[in-house]
Design a protein around this nucleic acid. Structure first.
Length: 583
DNA sequence: GCCGTTTTCGGCCCGACTGTTTTCAGTCG
């Protein structure tokens, strides 16, 4: 099996950990971490990039790391990695990942006390031995035990799906903003950047009187454990395992504070380097002249921060050092899609298969949310567990769709489609004669996602080439933090989608968010149209469209690339391209 | 180990909080 980008990235992260424990220069360690991050975010397989001889075009990959990648891809092994793994016990790396333990302590536990596993560390802590080590005391020992307990409780998984983190953050922020001392506040960090998974929640509140806000924050009912409680910054762990950090700053410093706490780290490093080039040091409080006695320059808005650096405001979803600074300098920032651009929802289920509402109820619920038209897309016959429709029932359903459409026209339209299974053998679930009678056809992978790359890719390509298939639903089939995506050759999928004018979905369900941003961005660059759909099975899930919009913005997507922004007439015309394709 | 309008060497963002220390190192984001 070829190595996935994620596996390669994990290996380089591991290298960074081991080097850091060995006391290697932080800059060399960072080089491996930066390369790992870049590889994780790539929209293409490292293997494909290597085949093109372009490894060194990957950001933060230079000659040496490119050589290591080549060795890994050609031999399946990396001698450097294997040697390091023999030198540094895996348990020591695990200890490094405990909250409050860094490379210095992990190394000390190992070298000075012979501790090479979390279990052994726990034993020594319970026996009161750790406090005897230099720099350690009773409190440090207790913190170690707390960290180990937390690791057991929440397993090794440290990230939380956006769909859980965002509502949780909104609930906490609302409590803080209810306090009279709070002027205003936002959710910053990776939630604001719309990452599909969240490491911790970053909250920012403007106030001249921070202590009461801090006190409320650390005593909220959601709080399981207080990690830190200072005058302007506090950290807690919530009962759902999520870590939340709160910073409180004066309103006149809001711009620099929000810019800083929105990240990403790599974007901020670039921004601070630009400030330094202008003789300014930038932190969350202000710009400060580096040499000399110049006064602080305060920024009350983010726009003012970017303006000081000669840049237009950069939307937070783009702040990953993925070309957004260069685009801003050139005046080429994208006009990102917003919820207001969305006219339709092209993927949802009803009681005909596994949905909770009738066709009419879904239509009313979508209309109430400002949609102008929808497509009903229940499951096809293979999805027996989801009560998938036989061809007969599908056409029976069409009569009801037509009746409701006639009732609601002209201010709302209901079209008839299907979410058709791509079967394990690559065939589709209905013959073309049936598909020809539908307004819109989604083809999706639901089974045999773990097939080898060639096989699973061939199935999707077959669906893309069918002239009746308008959209590939949740193309990679991932469930965030639960199920890995299918091992699709995304270069081939995107190229075929472009050639056959088949759209690819950004499924807005926060458990999916599939396509993820890096693939959606590449698809648009290659001329593919996207759809942003809720795949709703209930009324509430129609509101999850916001997660799809967030993901699309993160992918640099503009309204014209998304078929849900089409007017009714434009949409009907777009679906007619099947005729041009000889169907 | 990467990178370049300070360019092939010499930098590499910056501050808050904690615990252990009596002035700072370690960790974190």
């Amino acid at each position: 099996m070829p190595l996935t980008n994620r596996e390669i990235a994990a290996m380089f992260e591991n290298i960074a950990d081991m080097l850091q424990i060995q006391g290697e220069s932080i800059h060399r360690v960072s080089a491996y971490r930066n390369a790992a991050q870049a590889i994780r975010d790539l929209p293409r397989d490292v293997q494909a990039i290597a085949d093109d001889g372009e490894l060194e075009t990957i950001p933060n990959v230079g000659k040496i790391i490119a050589e290591k990648l080549t060795e890994l891809l050609t031999t399946g092994k990396l001698e450097f990695y294997e040697r390091l793994s023999e030198e540094v016990p895996p348990g020591v790396v695990e200890i490094l990942h405990l909250n409050g333990v860094g490379p210095k302590k992990a190394k000390m536990f190992w070298q000075d006390a012979g501790i090479t596993s979390v279990d052994e560390l726990e034993k020594q802590a319970r026996a009161g031995k750790l406090r005897e080590l230099s720099g350690m005391g009773v409190k440090s020992e207790a913190k170690i035990l707390t960290a180990i307990e937390s690791l057991k409780q929440h397993s090794a998984e440290t990230r939380t799906p956006l769909g859980i983190a965002l509502p949780s953050a909104e609930a906490i922020l609302a409590q803080l903003l209810a306090l009279p001392q709070a002027e205003h506040g936002v959710i910053a960090g990776s939630i604001r950047r719309a990452r599909p998974t969240i490491g911790d929640v970053d909250l920012l509140v403007a106030s001249d009187d921070a202590p009461p806000i801090m006190d409320r924050f650390v005593t909220m009912p959601e709080v399981e454990q207080v990690l830190g409680h200072g005058p302007t910054k506090s950290s807690v762990v919530l009962h759902n395992g999520l870590q939340a950090d709160l910073r409180v700053l004066a309103a006149e410093r809001w711009g620099t504070a929000l810019q800083y706490f929105s990240g990403s780290q790599t974007h901020n490093i670039r921004i601070r380097e630009m400030a330094r080039a202008q003789g300014l040091s930038l932190n969350e409080h202000a710009f400060t002249p580096i040499n000399g006695d110049g006064a602080e320059i305060l920024c009350a808005t983010e726009e003012a921060v970017y303006e000081r650096l000669g840049l237009p405001w950069i939307p937070p979803e783009l702040r990953e050092d993925g070309g957004e600074i260069e685009a801003a300098q050139a005046g080429h920032l994208p006009n990102l899609i917003t919820l207001e651009d969305i006219r339709s929802d092209l993927h949802m289920h009803t009681t005909w298969s596994d949905g909770k509402l009738s066709i009419r109820q879904m239509a009313d619920a979508a209309r109430a949310r400002g949609r102008q038209f929808i497509v009903i897309t229940d499951h096809s016959v293979s999805s027996a567990i989801a009560n998938g429709l036989s061809a007969e029932r599908l056409l029976e359903q069409q009569e009801e769709v037509r009746r409701i459409d006639a009732e609601m026209e002209p201010d709302f339209r209901v079209f008839h489609g299907v979410e058709m299974d791509i079967r394990a053998d690559g065939t589709l679930d209905y013959p073309d004669e049936v598909l020809a009678q539908l307004d819109f056809v989604i083809a999706s992978l639901h089974v045999s996602l773990q097939q080898p790359r060639e096989q699973v890719t061939a199935r999707v390509l077959n669906a893309i080439r069918n002239p009746y298939v308008d959209l590939i639903g949740h193309p990679r089939g991932q469930l965030i933090l639960q199920r890995d995506p299918a091992d699709l050759d995304m270069d081939a999928v995107i190229a075929a989608a472009a050639e056959h004018e088949t759209a690819l979905e950004i499924n807005a369900n926060p458990r999916r968010l599939d396509l993820e941003a890096q693939y959606a961005r590449r698809a648009v660059e290659m001329g593919v149209r996207l759809a942003i759909n809720t795949d709703a099975h209930t009324e509430e899930q129609l509101d999850q469209i916001r997660y799809g919009i967030m993901t699309a913005r993160r992918a640099w997507v503009e309204p014209q690339s998304v078929i849900n922004t089409l007017t009714l007439d434009e949409f009907i015309e777009w679906t007619q391209r099947r005729i041009r394709q000889g169907a």
